[in-house]
């Protein structure tokens, strides 16, 4: 009874007490199950770790593990560059596709509900262990290879395109790679479509009606209403896609980090790699925020 009374005191008090009370579980969990292991992992990266029956022993080796990952072990640099390149290639494609798909799914047509159910299916079947098994699957690999020959990167077309000299070579390679990647792009866009779709539906119809009365064409209202209104979500989706691409379990570098932990040079090197990788992700996200937040329009 007493407790109840205290909660009801004032509006400002309610804000403070409520805020701390509701977020307390997270703060406790963050310190115990995230921050502590996180700091420990950085400490491990400066040590050589060996397991004993009563726990583990650490031997301080300074930055040896870092030197080793960068200079001695060539796999890390290679996997790093490949992972980042792949992310840079896929990011614009995923964004463009999910935006386009959301606009498509937002229109009124027969069978819309069914189309939506299908479009979000990859979220269900393309995750975790199933995704991992697919990566290693013999037939999937085979299909991928035959697809590459079958689809547009067929050599004849490539040569033909390059001979026409309309576009720079790098661009042609990018486009061809993009075309080959279509199934992957479509299957990893589920959540992004969801976010865009929700955003499109939150734009009040009255804004479009007002524009129409003023004589704006559909094209104009897309560029002047839809795009600015949805720009915060473009940023959200960029961040989600970058994080998802860089931390998902079938990512080459993540696999390398995991394999290194249990074989070869052991856990110290693995954490050193992970720490550097995390720092790189943080820098990339920082740059993205810096560049894109200038273009984002907030309604409030």
């Amino acid at each position: 009874m007493k407790l109840n009374k205290r909660f009801r005191v004032t509006v400002e008090n309610r804000g403070k007490i409520g805020g701390y009370l509701f977020t307390l579980p997270f703060v406790v969990g963050f310190i115990l199950f995230f921050l502590y292991p996180f700091v420990q992992s950085i400490i491990f990266s400066l040590n050589k770790l060996s397991l004993t029956t009563e726990g583990y022993e650490l031997e301080f080796v300074r930055f040896d593990n870092y030197y080793y990952s960068i200079f001695t072990n060539t796999e890390f640099n290679q996997a790093f560059v490949e992972t980042i390149t792949e992310m840079v290639i896929d990011l614009p494609l995923i964004l463009a596709f999910s935006f386009f798909a959301a606009i498509l799914l937002n229109q009124k047509f027969k069978g819309r509900a069914l189309a939506r159910v299908i479009f979000f299916l990859p979220v269900i079947y393309s995750a975790g262990v199933v995704l991992k098994m697919e990566q290693n699957d013999f037939v999937t690999q085979l299909m991928k290879e035959s697809n590459i020959n079958f689809m547009f990167s067929g050599e004849a077309l490539q040569v033909l395109l390059k001979q026409t000299k309309f576009l720079p070579d790098a661009m042609i390679t990018y486009v061809l790679k993009a075309v080959d990647n279509i199934p992957v792009i479509i299957r990893s866009s589920g959540i992004q479509i969801l976010v865009f779709l929700a955003g499109l539906q939150s734009i009040p119809v009255s804004v479009y009606e007002a524009a129409e009365v003023e004589g704006a064409s559909g094209w104009e209202s897309f560029w002047l209403i839809t795009l600015p209104m949805i720009s915060p979500l473009i940023l959200t989706n960029i961040v989600y896609t970058v994080v998802d691409k860089l931390t998902r379990a079938d990512n080459e570098l993540v696999l390398l980090i995991k394999d290194t932990a249990f074989t070869g040079r052991g856990y110290g090197v693995s954490t050193a790699m992970a720490t550097m990788y995390f720092a790189a992700i943080a820098v990339i996200l920082g740059i993205i925020f810096k560049v894109f937040s200038r273009y984002v329009f907030y309604r409030e």
Binding site: F26, Y36, F38, T247, T271, F278
Partner: peptide, 21 residues
């Protein structure tokens, strides 16, 4: 910000300390 931080750290980074804990 901390909530977002937990999202961008690859889980592999804290796996073994978490296991040991």
């Amino acid at each position: 910000a901390l909530v977002i931080l937990t999202l961008i750290v690859p889980p592999q980074m804290i796996l073994i300390p978490l296991y040991l804990n």
